[in-house]
Amino acid sequence: MSIDWITVAAQIANFLLLMWLLRRFLYRPILDGIDAREVEISDRMQEAVHAKEQAQAEKQSYLDKVQALNVAQSEMTETIRRSAEEQRDVLLAETQKRLQQENATWKAHLDDETHKYTAKMHRAGAEALLSLTRKALNDLADETLETRVAHHLIQQITPMVPDLKRAAGQAAQAVIISQSALPAAVKDELTTELQKAFPQSVVRFETDETQAPGLVLRVGGAQLAWTVESYIDGLSALIDEQLASGGDLKVKSHEQ
């Protein structure tokens, strides 16, 4: 057992050289590689964290958009519903108004038709009444209606002369109006009788087709009517009553 100091020196040199070589080719590459990998892993972890945060932000943004979309959809649905209700109300109002207008138009048309029909019935009733009366007088008494009316007027006018004079004053003429021209004999009788009552007045005869059958005496401001107007009015009231009852039934059935 001996120490060779040359070998010792050589081994120290060899050891230092080996230490440098291993530092150059082993430790540094390996440790630097490990450090680089740790840095890379750390960077990737940070990137992953960043990507996760971005994903979370995107997710939150998406959820916000979905929520906003839902809110907008709800608002839109509500708006559409309200608009539909308003349109429905407007259409209902228009329909009701149109219905009321049509109802009013129809009622006016019905009233007009009723009025025309009533007038027609009035005329027909009056004509029938007069025709029957004339025929009955002619067949049974050989008299005309105007002659009998004139004779009756002559009988009734005498007690009414004082009242007529007060009402007529100093009249210049007396006018007798009939629906058709009176016979000459009747005109003479009436002229004679009226000149007894009103000597200063001139008697004049006129015809008016719109007037009811009978006679109307007009002296100054006084007027005496002796016609079948009241009878025709009674007939018209009867017809109106019948029509009114029938018309109501029709209107009710139409409204139902």
């Binding site: 060779d4 070998t7 050589a10 081994q11 060899n14 070589l21 291993l22 590459p29």
Partner: peptide
């Protein structure tokens, strides 16, 4: 001597493997 020679062998082995 053998000590130095085999030391070089060890050094060559370690360095070569590392490289």
């Amino acid at each position: 001597n053998a000590t130095i020679l085999y030391t070089w062998v060890v050094m060559a082995f370690l360095t070569g493997a590392a490289i």
